[in-house]
Each structure stands twice: as C-alpha cells, then as structure tokens.
Design a protein around this nucleic acid. Structure first.
Length: 812
DNA sequence: GAGTTTGAAACT
DNA sequence: CAGTTTCAAACTC
C-alpha cells in the first residue's frame, strides 16, 4: 500500500488516507474541518478516484470550501496553511476542550488509548486524528523505541524570498537527501536540510519521506511566514497568525516526528499520510502535540507505549495539559538514543536544547509518573541557560524567535514555551526550573507548568522598565531585555535549581529563595514557596497555583505539593477547580489584539492584557506587587476594584490616553486625579506602550524578563509569547476557550479572557466579585473607548481572537 | 532576619 | 453575596 517514497507527498498522503481504514473509521468528517480542507487539498489531487469512493472524502469535500487542487507540492501545503483562516485552525472551544480531555488522560493513567481515541474522534477536526490513534496503537505495539526525531527548523530570518520555491526544494531534498538514514528497527530516519540562502532547515525524521517533506514544508512555510512578516503589514498580520500557527505546527510536527518511532509506527504514520500528519499537527493546536510528546516521552522512559499512552490520556488537570507545550516539545526531542542518530543533523546547540528539553520532558513525565526521572535532571542542569532562552523567548518573543530558534533552541523549545498552562505558571520559569531543576522528583511540576504561561507577562516595555525598577533581577542579567526572564530564569534556574539540591538547603531561607526566585525573573522558574500552613495545596502557594510541584528550594512546611503526593495534589486541584474553574488559569490575560487590529492600533494599548479578575487593592495604590495587576505587569482594568489606583501599567479607568480623558469623565473616583497624573507619568509610557499586538508579534518581546522580577514573570513570558505562543495556547484552549491565536498562549485563551473582555466591556459584572468596578460607566468607557481606541483594544482583541472570538462571535 | 503590611484565598 | 479569617508574599526596618 505504501507508495513510493519518492512520490509526491501529497499523493502519498492521499494514498495513505485512503489506505488507512482505521483512519477512515476514526476519521469523521469534522464539522469544522476547515482544517481538513488543507489536508484535503493536498490529498485531493491524488486520490480523487479513491476518495470518491470514500464517504469520508465525500463528506470532507462537501465541507471543505476548498477546491481540490491538482498537485501542488509544497506550495499547496503552504497555501493551505498560510491561508487557512485562523478561525478554522483554531477549533471551537469545545473542540479544544475535547482535545484537552485527551491529553489530560495521562495523569490519572486511567484513560487509555480508547479514551484517547474517543477524544480524538471527537476532535474530528483533524483528519489525522485517526492516524493519531493508529500511531498510539502502533506505539503500543512497538516496544522498540525508535529514535525520536528532532527537528530543528531555522527559518532564516533574513530569508525573504520564494516561499513557493522553498517547499518544493525541500521536498526534493527529502527525496534526494543524502541524509536519508535508516535507523535499524526504527524505520527510516530522514534528515532534511534546506538551505535557503541563509535559511537552513534541518529536519530529522524517523518517519516517512513524505512526512519529512511535510515537515520541511512547514519549515519553509515558517520561513516564508517570517518573510511575510517583514514584508507587509496586513500580510504581516496574516503571516503572524500563520506563524503562530506554524510555530504550533512546527511543534506539532516535531511532536509528530517524535511520535514516529518504530517501523510499525512508520507504517501507521504513512497511513497518517504525510499530509494528515502534518496537517494535523499544523492544524491541531497544541493538543495534538501533547499526546505525541507524552507518548514520546513516556516511551523512552518507560519503554512502554501503553504506559505512555495511558499517562497521556489521563491528564486530568487541564492546566497541566496546557503547560505541556514546552514539555511536549522537549519530549519530542527525547530520543534517548535517537539523538545520537539525529545528532548529525542537529547542531550542538540543538542537542543542548534537546537535553534541556529532555529534562523538561522528564519532568513532565515525572509529573505524570510521579516517579520522576531524576536522571534527566542532571542533564538539564548542565544545559546552558542560553539554550533555554530560546524557549523562553518563544513564549514571549517574536514569532521569529519561535521559528527561528536556533537549532539549539530547537523547535521544541519554540513550540511551547509557554503555553500554558494555565497557570500562572510561568512561562519559562517552570521550564527553567523544570529543566534546571534537576531534582528529578522535585523538579517535576505539574507539567503544564513547563509550559508555564506566565500569568503575568510583562506586557509593555514600560512594564519591563517598571519591573526593572522594581526588581533587581533584571539587572543581574546582562542582556537585559533579551535575557529576559527566560534567560535569567534559565541562568538562575539553571543555577539555582541545579544547585538547588546543594544550594537549596543553603538558600533555604524563604526570603532568600524568594529573592532568587524572583530575581531569577522567571519567578516561576525559580519560584519557591514558603508555605507554612497550607501544605502547598492551596492557591496561597505560588507553586501550587502555578501548577508546579514544590521543589527542594521551597521552604514550605508539610508540603504535599510533590510528585509523591500526586494524587492528593490532583484531587486538590480538582476541588479548587470545581469551585473556580479558572483558579489555575493565568491571572493575567493578554488578549493580544488580533493581528488585524494591530495594524491599526499598533501603537496603542498594550493591549488587552489585564488581570483576570482584577485587583482589589486598597492601600498599595496598585503600585506594589501586592497588586496582582501590577505584579503581572498589566494595567488595571474596569474589573478592578482597587482604590486609588495608580498602576503604572495603566489605571483601571484610563487605559489609553484617549480613555484617559473619558476616565475622568466617567466614574472618576479617586483615580481620576490619579489617573491624570499617572497617565501623564505612566500611562503615556505604559499605556501606550503596552504591547501592541503587532509589536508583540514581531518583536521578541520586550521583557518578559521583567516580569521575571517578581512573580509576575510567570506570565510574562506568556504574554510575550503570544504571538509565538499562541499556537501553544491552543493547549490551553481546552481550558480556556478563547483562542486567540495570537493570544497566546498563556493567558488568554481561557474563556475568561473573553470574559474579561466582556467584563471590560460589559463591566466587570460577570467577573468582578464586588461588582463595584463594574460600574456602567466603565462599560460605557470601554465601549466608548472602543470607538476612541482605548478600550477598543479589548473589544477588538476579543474579536480578533481568531479561534474563539471569531467563531464564537460569529456563532453568537 | 524579624516583623509588618498587604491583598488574595478561603471560610463562614 | 458579603463579611471575616487565614495565608503567604511583599515590603520595611
């Protein structure tokens, strides 16, 4: 059944589709399958005849607005990907949720393939779902661990041309690639390198040529996208979106690759059809990735596919899931042995990262397994902080970063920096920790954490500046911005955590630890709690709140937030979530404006980043970290019930300058006077500053690092990550519905974000506990501001969210 | 490092 | 839902 490897990938994919009966069975015409469209496109040409036979195809055809295209190699793929509507890409919240469910399984371990399969089915969105299932099965069957693929994509930042050409070239390479290596037992591993001028794409796959090709295509796409960004505004926007998607895709791809292990797997992969796999990966948000990663990870560790699957399946905590991105990515790398094989292709940097990632994975695993692999931790510790950076950047930074990540950064890191977790976890921090923390068990975090979305991403430069002023941590880092929390965190993390074992003891004093943690910037990464009475099972505990396990460095007493007590932790989390589903969601939601909007508002508000519930400060004037908004580096919003707000990042009343005036008119309250002052002083800088979506997207972000200072850092990366992270976010999606692509990850996805927005618009009603702030005026403001632009951001941001917003709104 | 302040989280 | 208590971080000295 397999088709000649040399055959056009599209054809292969089509054939695969046809071939895989299982898939057919599994595959259901996803309702929303715009995604499929992409895949279909690719497939269509080839399989038409067969397809006709297949009810599934028919169904898809009906659904897919896209007309079948004749063979288009990479180009087609590219188009589909690039142009597919984001909304299409992002599934409805439901979908996301479903996906989550899938991923979650693992934790409990109760769920197994079947469950996962069910989920997959539900997810129909991806044509490849069935493939996934198949793969999972195959994996189970396959005891042999195939080398995991490590794919590094280095999108040439500079590279500006020939989007179309590249893909094709890539394909060719694949075919001809000398590197095409066969791994004993594991199937053929192919490495594809593309030299696009500067751009170099390296992909190592165990899988089928077609698959690899796809990957290559993706890489090329990514590059192209990058190019697009540089080139046109609108296009940039679109490109950004795509990039986000792509980044995700790439991640997925990576994951996918990893998934491919054994020959059997290969077969199935083939079934996947390259197209499917790639498409799925691309299409699928994080979710898809998770499973693979987990699988991959589990694989190596336990060597048992089933275990892996089970674990995967059961992640109960959505948060964890969300956070998995990074982990996932890392996991993908996990090749125990594979690395060696792949090593050729991968640069040293990549290797390093891979190691880190491994560490991450391990943690994740450990988390799931509870057993934790400590071994890995050691490796991680070794990693250089610089290595970590990429990942962190991803979270925060530009899409480019994500994409361009050094080989070292490896797609993995890119992929997920932050996704998120829900949690407040810190974007990178966790990773750092996770990675660095060698402490195996300790290091474990709720996985999701690894994704670490910072609840409080530093939105604007100002914020960063503020943070800097506030926190010294930044200073520590030489690089400053770029270093960001990530770097710092890494560094620190690497240092601290690594040392933790030794140092922890020394550091022990809670305060010091805090300092470090904070200083680390990652906050999360370094985060250490000092809980005395909560046993680290309440939200009081930062670690717990962040979805991570307490680590040695923590000075907590009677801590139950450890892998050993995984069950307890999970149970507690469930309880808390039952009370407040968003309890573990990132506190700071960044609704990055939709790219579209961005063009218009680029300079304006930092966006819609804001605290989920808003603060309730009475005495701190929102100028201290007591204020969660301030801590998170976001301005106060109407939902805040703070008094005397002077939040330098933006007062609740006056988001923007324009609003500023309104604010005055509005309820005004104490803030009015303050606002004026503040605005003049702060807002102008901060308010305007705030991250413009555009800026966010393109830029690496400013300072996620800043956040690092304080807790906020947690989110910081996330916030930054948006653009890049967005894809990642998908992971979160499940939890959160919103999908702003751009939004990244971290925060926003949660429905709350929408809510927030809604709250903002609506007036915090829904959200604000007190409802005081909800005052209608604000709403009015928000609306009015919209017109003016201030709040607009928020409103727009909502719509902008491709996935949810668009869909939801449309639906509504 | 100890103590105080602060505001979120949890409880009633 | 509002008020109170508990908690741990943030901050000050």
């Amino acid at each position: 059944m397999r088709e000649n490897p040399t055959v056009n990938p599209t054809l292969i994919a089509a054939s695969n589709l046809i071939n895989g009966e299982k898939r057919k069975a599994v595959k259901l015409p996803p309702p929303g399958l715009s995604f499929l469209g992409g895949g279909d496109r690719i497939r269509l040409p080839r399989a038409k005849t067969q397809r006709e036979d297949s009810p599934t195809f028919n169904f898809i055809d009906d659904l897919s607005p896209i007309q079948p295209v004749k063979s288009a190699h990479g180009v087609q793929v590219f188009h589909s990907l690039s142009f597919a509507s984001i909304s299409s890409v992002f599934t409805s919240p439901q979908v996301s949720s479903q996906k989550e469910s899938r991923f979650r399984y693992p934790c409990s371990g109760s769920s197994k393939l079947g469950s996962s399969a069910e989920n997959l089915d539900q997810n129909n969105l991806y044509t490849g779902t069935s493939d996934y299932i198949n793969l999972a099965v195959a994996r189970e069957k396959c005891n042999t661990i195939c080398s995991l693929n490590e794919a590094n994509v280095d999108p040439p930042e500079q590279c500006t041309t020939r989007p179309n050409d590249v893909p094709q070239a890539a394909i060719q390479y694949d075919r001809d690639s000398p590197k095409h290596n066969t791994v004993a037992g594991c199937g053929v591993k192919t490495e594809v390198k593309l030299d696009n001028g500067e751009a170099l794409v390296e992909l190592a796959h165990v899988a089928h040529d077609g698959v690899e090709k796809r990957k290559v295509l993706f890489a090329t796409e990514i590059e192209l996208r990058d190019e697009h960004q540089s080139t046109q505004d609108e296009e940039e926007v679109a490109a950004c979106d795509w990039e986000n998607l792509i980044s995700v895709d790439t991640n997925d791809l990576l994951v996918f690759d990893s998934s491919t292990d054994s020959e059997a797997c290969k077969d199935q992969e083939e079934d996947f059809g390259d197209d499917d796999a790639t498409l799925m990966s691309s299409l699928k948000p994080v979710d898809s990735v998770d499973p693979y990663f987990r699988n991959a990870v589990q694989y190596p560790q336990e060597g048992n596919d089933e275990h892996a699957i089970e674990e995967h399946g059961t992640d109960h905590t959505p948060q964890i899931l969300s956070g998995t991105f990074q982990n996932q990515v890392l996991l993908s790398d996990e090749d125990h042995e594979t690395e060696k094989e792949t090593g050729n292709c991968i640069s040293a940097d990549c290797k390093v990262e891979s190691q880190q990632q491994r560490g991450m994975r391990r943690r994740c695993l450990t988390f799931e397994l509870a057993g934790g692999s400590k071994k890995n931790s050691t490796i991680n510790s070794n990693l250089h902080p610089s290595v970590l950076l990429p990942s962190s950047r991803k979270c925060t930074a530009d899409n480019k970063n994500l994409i361009s990540l050094k080989p070292g950064s490896s797609s993995l890191s890119r992929a997920l920096p932050s996704i998120g977790l829900h949690l407040n976890t810190l974007r990178t921090i966790p990773t750092d920790r996770m990675v660095t923390k060698g402490t195996p068990a300790l290091g474990k975090r709720f996985i999701s954490m690894s994704c670490s979305i910072n609840p409080y991403p530093p939105v604007t430069v100002e914020q960063s500046a503020v943070e800097k002023s506030l926190d010294v941590v930044m200073d520590k880092h030489p690089t400053g911005k770029e270093v960001l929390n990530h770097d710092v965190s890494h560094d620190d993390a690497s240092k601290a955590p690594e040392f933790d074992d030794s140092n922890n003891l020394t550091q022990r004093s809670p305060k010091k630890r805090k300092c470090k943690s904070e200083s680390d910037g990652d906050g999360d990464a370094c985060k250490r709690c000092n809980c005395k009475k909560s046993k680290c099972l309440k939200l009081y505990c930062e670690c717990f709140a962040a979805g991570i396990y307490c680590v040695e460095p923590c000075a907590c007493i009677g801590c139950l937030n450890k892998p050993i007590h995984e069950e307890t932790v999970l149970a507690t989390r469930k309880q808390i979530e039952s009370r407040n589903p968003l309890a573990f969601a990132p506190k700071v939601i960044r609704a990055s404006k939709p790219v579209q909007d961005m063009g218009e508002e680029t300079n304006k508000t930092p966006a819609s980043a804001r605290h989920k519930r808003g603060c309730n400060c009475k005495k701190s004037n929102c100028l201290k970290k007591y204020c969660e908004c301030f801590q998170g580096g976001v301005g106060c919003s109407p939902s805040c019930r703070c008094e005397g707000c002077r939040n330098t990042f933006g007062r609740k009343d006056g988001f923007d300058d324009a609003e500023h005036a309104k604010e005055l008119t509005v309820s005004g309250e104490k803030q009015q006077s303050n606002l004026q002052e503040d605005q003049n002083d702060h807002q102008s800088p901060g308010g305007t500053l705030p991250i413009t979506p555009s800026s966010e997207i393109f830029r690496p972000f400013v300072k996620p690092s800043l956040h690092s200072n304080g807790k906020p850092p947690r989110s910081s990366t996330l916030s930054i990550g948006y653009s890049t992270l967005q894809p990642l976010r998908k992971c979160e999606f499940p939890l959160q519905k919103t999908a702003n692509h751009f939004n990244p990850p971290a925060e926003g996805d949660t429905p709350e974000i929408l809510r927030d927005d809604a709250s903002c618009n609506n007036g915090v009603k829904t959200i604000s506990p007190n409802g005081k702030r909800v005052s209608p005026p604000h709403k009015a403001l928000g609306l009015s501001s919209k017109s003016k632009g201030g709040r607009k951001l928020i409103l727009k941001s909502i719509p902008s969210f491709p996935s949810l917003n668009g869909d939801e709104t449309s639906e509504h």
